[in-house]
Design a protein around this nucleic acid. Structure first.
Lengths: 144, 144
DNA sequence: GTTGGTGCAAATGATTTGCAAAAGG
DNA sequence: CCTTTTGCAAATCATTTGCACCAAC
């Protein structure tokens, strides 16, 4: 089953209509392999399907979020960044000083999720966390 | 030493000038005992000192953040919420469904901070985290 | 006096919304 | 057909910025 068909099936099963815009937004995210802003998603989609409004992108991404197919994260920039959410979750260490971004394996957040579930019955949505702080380079720089 | 004097000393030592606006914004946060939006801070300050612009509140809070005297957190509402940052850090579990908010002790994030520091040399700023998810009540509701 | 801080007013800019037309099922 | 979805255009609204004046020190 192709990516497109897979998305289409998921949408239909969830009671949403399948439209080219939705498939293309999903596809753009799935194949980007990185975080995209709403404007970047629109750009990607327009390369194939010229007329897509930003509002449609926002509405679609909102839907994908509800279906746990995409995540939205404030990574310290001016706009929210969206990412396809498949396979293992991952997170980011973002340096407040130099903006460098490192990937953090989900293993680091596993026990937190478990403890919070055990102690509070809370099902934490730890798909995509942004942890701000100072990277090793900037820490050394600050001491010098 | 009173709260006001304490803040004044900190500001002076950090090379910032001491102004009534700054002392009052700090005081509003310190004594609120809860999260305040910029507008709420302005309201508090104006009760004592009638003319304070929102932009001053934003600029002051930004300064307090740099001094680690206050935190800014997106708690899912329309605006950022600010809180005085004293004593032990704490965090929040926020239900995406019913918006209920529970306090999470810093102990839950301690090991994460340590591991990230050890493995990446990254000094995580884990003063005030908002963890979204489903609370126990809403999980039960969803199953029914 | 200098420099930094404030109020005011205006700009910014991402995200949201109302609505009529278009398309999915 | 009936309902959902879209594009368009306009609105929203928290936050930021430029600038002239004022206050710390």
């Amino acid at each position: 089953m192709s990516c497109e068909q897979e998305t289409a099936t998921t949408l239909r099963e969830s009671g949403f209509r399948v439209t080219p815009q939705r498939l293309l937004v999903a596809s753009a995210l799935r194949h980007a392999g990185r975080h995209l802003s709403a404007a970047e998603i629109a750009e990607e989609v327009r390369a194939v399907y010229p007329v897509v409004d930003l509002s449609t992108v926002y509405r679609t991404v909102e839907m994908l979020k509800r279906l746990h197919l995409a995540t939205a994260t404030d990574m310290g920039g001016d706009d929210l960044l969206f990412e396809w959410s498949a396979g293992e979750a991952h997170h980011h260490l973002i340096c407040s000083s130099c903006r460098k971004m490192q990937v953090l394996d989900h293993a680091y957040l596993n026990s937190l999720a478990e403890e919070v579930g055990r102690d509070f019955g809370f099902e934490a949505d730890l798909q995509h966390f942004a942890i701000f702080g100072l990277c090793s380079d900037c820490r050394e720089g600050a001491q010098a």
